[in-house]
Simulated assay, not measured.
Amino acid sequence: MSNSHIREALAGVIEHFTQHPELGLMTDSTAVAVWQGGLRFQTEGPSGATLVSEMPKAVGGGGSAPTPGWLLRAALANCNASMIALRAAQAGITLTRLEVTVDSDSNDRGLLGLAEVPPGPLRVRAHVRLAADGASAEQLQALVDWAEQHSPVADALRRAVPLGTTVEIGR
């Protein structure tokens, strides 16, 4: 997709939500994880999208697919990269390189219930490499700053989002 195509699509969406702000609030598409045996799951989503995860061999999984924790980091990397590219297109900046690397520190004793430490990441880091012909370092930094403030995945990790669970017992 070209920058002009992205810019035109964004302009249409912005105009739509400017005229109809009440339509901005919606329920996001569902992700349904289906057990495939052991510690392997296939998650199904909209338009036939599928994603497989499996826990590593060290905890009894087969290690044949990414772990859910890696998928979280991948989601953050992809979301931040998408938002940087979106903002660049909006600003008329043609990127020549964009790479977002995400890693984290965790204490696996938490997910095993062996210590009073959180089961999730203790710290998450993102590293962005980008370049664009004719854009200054300040302009590129502004793209990243804007993207980090508008990335839905980064936002979900940054603030406490209410999480509710319902349980259905039976077949």
Rank of each mutant, 00 (worst) to 15 (best):
S104F: 04
A135I: 01
V102I: 11
G113H: 08
P118K: 07
L114K: 10
R125W: 02
D108E: 08
L112Y: 01
A132K: 09
L122G: 04
P119E: 09
R123T: 13
R109D: 14
A147I: 05
V102M: 06
Q139S: 14
L112G: 11
A126M: 06
L140H: 13
V102K: 06
E148R: 08
A132E: 12
L130N: 04
S136A: 03
P119D: 13
A126E: 10
A131K: 01
A142H: 15
L140E: 13
D108I: 11
D105I: 08
V102E: 04
A132V: 06
G110Y: 11
A115N: 02
D108R: 06
V102G: 05
H127V: 14
D133K: 14
E116G: 11
Q141F: 01
R129K: 11
S106L: 13
A137F: 02
Q139F: 09
E148H: 15
V117R: 00
L140P: 14
A137L: 10
L130S: 03
V117L: 00
G134Y: 10
E148N: 12
P119Q: 10
A135K: 03
D105C: 01
E148S: 05
R123N: 10
A131P: 09
A147C: 14
R125N: 11
D133E: 13
S106K: 14
A115T: 00
S136E: 04
Q139R: 15
P119R: 12
V124Q: 07
D105F: 01
P119N: 10
L114Y: 02
P121Y: 14
P118Y: 02
L140I: 08
G134A: 12
A135W: 03
D145G: 11
A147H: 13
A137I: 05
H127S: 05
E116H: 02
R123I: 08
L112R: 10
L112T: 01
A132S: 14
S106P: 00
R125P: 01
E116L: 00
A132D: 10
P119K: 07
G120D: 10
A142G: 15
P121K: 02
A142L: 12
V124L: 13
A115W: 00
P121G: 04
A131D: 15
L122Q: 12
E138W: 00
V144N: 06
S106A: 11
R123P: 02
P119H: 06
V102A: 10
P118C: 11
E116C: 00
V102H: 06
G134F: 06
V128K: 03
A132G: 12
V128N: 04
S106G: 06
L140M: 15
R125C: 03
V144R: 10
D103Y: 04
L143K: 07
